[in-house]
Design a binder for these strands. Sequence first.
DNA 1: AAATATTTTGCATCTATGTTGCAGAATATT
DNA 2: AATATTCTGCAACATAGATGCAAAATATTT
Lengths: 136, 136
Amino acid sequence: MDVPGILKKNGLSITEGRVKILNLFIKNDGALAHADIEKNTGAAFDRVTVYRTLQTFVDKGIVHHVPTTDNSILYALCKDDCEAGHHHDNHVHFICDQCNKTICLDEVIVPNVKLPKDFNSNRSEMVVHGVCGECK
Amino acid sequence: MDVPGILKKNGLSITEGRVKILNLFIKNDGALAHADIEKNTGAAFDRVTVYRTLQTFVDKGIVHHVPTTDNSILYALCKDDCEAGHHHDNHVHFICDQCNKTICLDEVIVPNVKLPKDFNSNRSEMVVHGVCGECK
DNA sequence: AAATATTTTGCATCTATGTTGCAGAATATT
DNA sequence: AATATTCTGCAACATAGATGCAAAATATTT
């Protein structure tokens, strides 16, 4: 589906900023931080607009948060979400120690773990660190 | 091992702030954010001191970062680190949706996942969300 | 296509979080 | 007890993110 289509499907107005930012996600298969987006759009938009756009995308399930160990917030697009419109982010995220990219491994499902009794699990997140195919 | 002993073993001076903060971690089996520590020490220490103490503890391997999906940094003590002094945090972290506590499941090891070929893994982190034994 | 209604953007402002340099205080060493 | 080392607190700074509101852009209606 094309970018305007994705926006319309989610009840969002089609604006220059949203189109450009969504395109950035589609071109880049890794995860993006707010700062990456500002760099790549050449400061064409206000900081606040970028924040709000990202928040909107998260709310609509177009994009999801990626867990990190530092204090950065990463956003990643799920291919499945794009196509089908239902939000599921139970896949593994991979962070390359070399190129520092965060990559969604859409095909790798987060495994279940045995929890202590009396613990119930809703959802799980998994981040794997290592060296990606490009850098190897 | 007692708190001053842990500090000494890591080549750190024994100071009021470090003892109190390390005690906080030992008493509380969940993960703590910077803000939690400031609350629990009754603002007895400067903000900067708390930041630096946490950074020092991370550097020395006394405490480790817990991955989160929001922008908060959580710190958690590993029982094993305390006892043996070697850093390993390949256990699962559990975040309770109800009481919002983060709990180190020291006995639950992060499972291995099959990565795409050409990907090498060094270490993995896993966060499970759900309801803990207390809240159930 | 023009007019109106709705959304979105940008600016100004504010808050929280985290860092760094440096002098004084506390701890460790001799 | 005196010296050397380490740590703390203050001030200042940097960055990330949120909010209210008027102006601008988009969507809808006629």
